[in-house]
Amino acid sequence: MVAEQWADVAVGEQAAVYGYSVMAAKVPAADKQRMLDAMEVHQRARDLARKKLARIDEAPSTPVAFDVPAISDLRSAEVVAAGMEIRLIDQYLAVVAAAEGADRVSAAEEAQACARRARNWGWRPVAFPGSQVEVTSADLTPSNSVAGTTSTPGVTSSQAAPGVPEGPPASVSPHDGAAVE
């Protein structure tokens, strides 16, 4: 049933909205707008997924909170951002497999948009995106940051902070904790 797959997309998109909103507050000012732009794109995609669910009389599930990995600098934010996009690719591909017609096309196009955004965060493309859910800094090429290598108090670029962790998984995942929206 494709409702289940669209429900996963709706949750994944909401996680991305939340993740980008958190990261926008933590990256250098020059990169903040990129995070906010991405957040808006995911808001629209989330709303679209919710409309799909409403059309098939399914109420979207609404996680109350999300866990966001620690953001210590721009590079770690890029790793999280790329990881969110790659994870969404998997969710859209699940819709492609389950759906037909316009829904399948729409999901395939959204998956491609996620891949392009992941690339914009520096993710190095692979032959079959989505199967590697955990994105680490090792999967990223040099940053596309607007801020470049300029250090900002409290938020440093990857070059300024070479110790970017190779893990943990760069995912923003729902949990049942207190509401944080």
Binding site: Y92, L93, V96, A97, Q112, C114, R116, P125, P129
Partner: peptide, 21 residues
């Protein structure tokens, strides 16, 4: 076949990222 559709869509995501790269 839905699985083949997903595989081809996945290939498309790789190519979309290539264009960006």
């Amino acid at each position: 076949d839905g699985d083949l559709a997903a595989l081809i869509a996945q290939i498309g995501t790789s190519e979309a990222a290539h264009a960006q790269w």
